[in-house]
Amino acid sequence: MNKAIIPKVLRWARQKSPWLLHFNTGGCNGCDIEILSLLTPRYDVERFGILKESSPRHADILICTGPVTQQVKPRLQRIYDQMPEPKWVLAVGSCSCSGGIFSGAYNILGGIDKVLPVDMYIAGCPCRPEAIIDGIVKLLGQVK
């Protein structure tokens, strides 16, 4: 019985308390301000227990915006390594999914998946806050 209950409780806790760490890997700010507006009265994601944390060590979900630039790549890797397991990566915006409008530029490596394993892609340029919430919900639905 113990074996059945503990994973269930853990799953519940992880689904109900996702803490985000936001990192702009070279985006245009459009998605970033939409992520910030998630916190504000109109969308208020604290309803779902989502908090925006500032230290990688406290976060569960790394939420990246923008294409990965050459300079930002080592830093992105380091931030990911600093996060404790279990952790997920969310690519927000078309350019963090694939490089988007910036693909082909000399300083752009491409999407986040060129550097990190991405768990959920959210398209849109910029993403609507509703889309970001939907992405997080779908990501949490997969949590075991």
């Binding site: 853990l10 806790a13 109900k16 308390s17 208020d44 604290e46 227990g49």
Partner: peptide, 15 residues
């Protein structure tokens, strides 16, 4: 804003 549901602190701690 609306704010978190009542079980929020518990879920945070367990997580």
């Amino acid at each position: 804003r609306i704010g978190p549901p009542w079980y929020q602190p518990l879920a945070d701690l367990v997580k």
